[in-house]
Design a protein around this nucleic acid. Sequence first.
DNA 1: TGAATTGTTCTACC
DNA 2: TGGTAGAACAATTC
Length: 280
Amino acid sequence: MPELPEVETVVRNLRSVLVNSKLSKLTVLKTKIVSPDLSSQIINQEIIAVERLGKYIIIQLSSGYLVVHLRMTGKLFTVNLTEFELAKQKYKHLHVIFDLISIPRAPNFNQVDNLLLFVDQRQFGRIIFCDNLAWLQAKLGLDPFDNKFTVSWLKNKFSQIKRAAKPVLLDQSIIAGLGNIYVDEVLWHAGINPKRPVNQISLSELQKLHTGIKNILELAIAKNGTTFQSYSFMGEKTGEFISYLKVFGRQDLACYTCGTKIIKLKIAQRGTHICPECQK
DNA sequence: TGAATTGTTCTACC
DNA sequence: TGGTAGAACAATTC
């Protein structure tokens, strides 16, 4: 379940291999994953940069952008030619293959150096091409690492919203990057019940929420994200943040603060983990 | 077999 | 109108 820290980990690992490569060929095994005419739009384009926008992976080309969303089970990683022979057998859900040629190279040099693979068990992930990112920037809220993400910004924003904390924090048009795992974690950290309307959260709680969001995401990135069910980066590598989780996936276990049993309930159609004592 | 899983989008409601 | 709640959707696993 890739959220901000997992996507950031993937982006950091892809960047060094992808930048200064040319996309020489596209093989699509599952057409529904990619936007129409993708091949003609990206072939022979050079990769300029690899960035993250919310949970989206942005691959900047000489002209336009390749935008990838991993959704639940998508994986985007590179392999060399030898590894690719193994990968073809190993990954049952390999859907898209990009051939990469390093540059600078002689203009007619066609040896493939690496391959960028998109593997997705559930097939919910998407890869699209677009000329600019305005549509995406318009629908995404503030990134938690944006300088504008402050306690006063949260206070002002939340004062206009009556909805419960859980769905608000999951809403990508408000804060971009949090998903089910980290929302449960930050709410536990701040001692906020996920059903609390956000306009009723006190200033001191907002301060805890703000530092919680930043600190938890920062640590999770440092630990290469959380591997709960399927997430991995660079093919097989898994995130280590799972051992730092305080509530997510810990139902029936003791709360680290007060010893009360963590419970799991459903809020806004999502599995939600709370300590009933610390998050009243 | 059907419930559970997710982020996003659509629809209905007040 | 616009904020909000809830359902639908995708595919697979157990």
